[in-house]
């Protein structure tokens, strides 16, 4: 059997677990616990190890979907999970106080991976923000030397998440 993996990472509450649920052919295995730090202001529970889902393309081909925990104290998981991955889907919560800083910090955290592997960025929860400051987003990417697809997404929306993954694949091979 041929096995591949896609990683979903990004800020807390951005919709990583939700995005995996949207794509997965199986019930998502979530490792959640009650939030005890400032995350509890956003949601009751949070991922503490990883989320797992799967796309069964055919009996011989599987794409594993892994969602990392968003909090920095679990960042040791990020490097472990990205090993051998096809690409990274980074979801950033636009309703957070500093979207550009969050984006910059995740780009730094995954710098080694995204130097050689494709990245797509989804800006989520824009309905809860005052609008997306696209200029700041593009400035951050430009300063980091990153040219990646950046789309406004609703993590619950299949079309949005599908387009993120489609852009990731075509980033690797535009002729696919």
């Amino acid at each position: 059997m041929q096995q591949y993996k896609l990683i979903f990472s990004g800020s807390v509450g951005a919709g990583k677990s939700t995005a995996i649920k949207v794509l997965s052919d199986i019930d998502v295995v979530a490792t959640e616990a009650r939030a005890t730090d400032k995350v509890k202001e956003k949601k009751e529970s949070t991922t503490v190890a990883m989320d797992y889902g799967r796309i069964n393309l055919d009996p011989e081909t599987v794409v594993h979907l892994y969602g990392t925990p968003g909090q920095e104290r679990f960042n040791f998981m990020w490097e472990i999970l990205t090993q051998g991955a096809l690409g990274l889907v980074l979801l950033i919560d636009c309703s957070a106080p500093s979207v550009s800083d969050d984006l910059a910090s995740y780009l730094d955290a995954f710098q080694d991976f995204i130097t050689h592997n494709p990245l797509v960025i989804g800006l989520s929860r824009s309905d809860l923000s005052n609008g997306i400051d696209w200029e700041s987003i593009h400035t951050v990417l430009s300063n980091k030397g990153v040219v990646a697809p950046v789309f406004e997404v609703d993590a619950r929306d299949k079309k949005d998440i599908n387009m993120l993954v489609e852009a990731l694949i075509l980033s690797i091979d535009p002729t696919a």
């Binding site: 055919d58 081909t61 993954v165 489609e166 690797i172």
Partner: peptide
């Protein structure tokens, strides 16, 4: 292009 994954990409797309 990374042709070694082209079958995967077609299936996924």
């Amino acid at each position: 292009t990374k042709k070694n994954n082209s079958a995967l990409f077609k299936k996924l797309l």
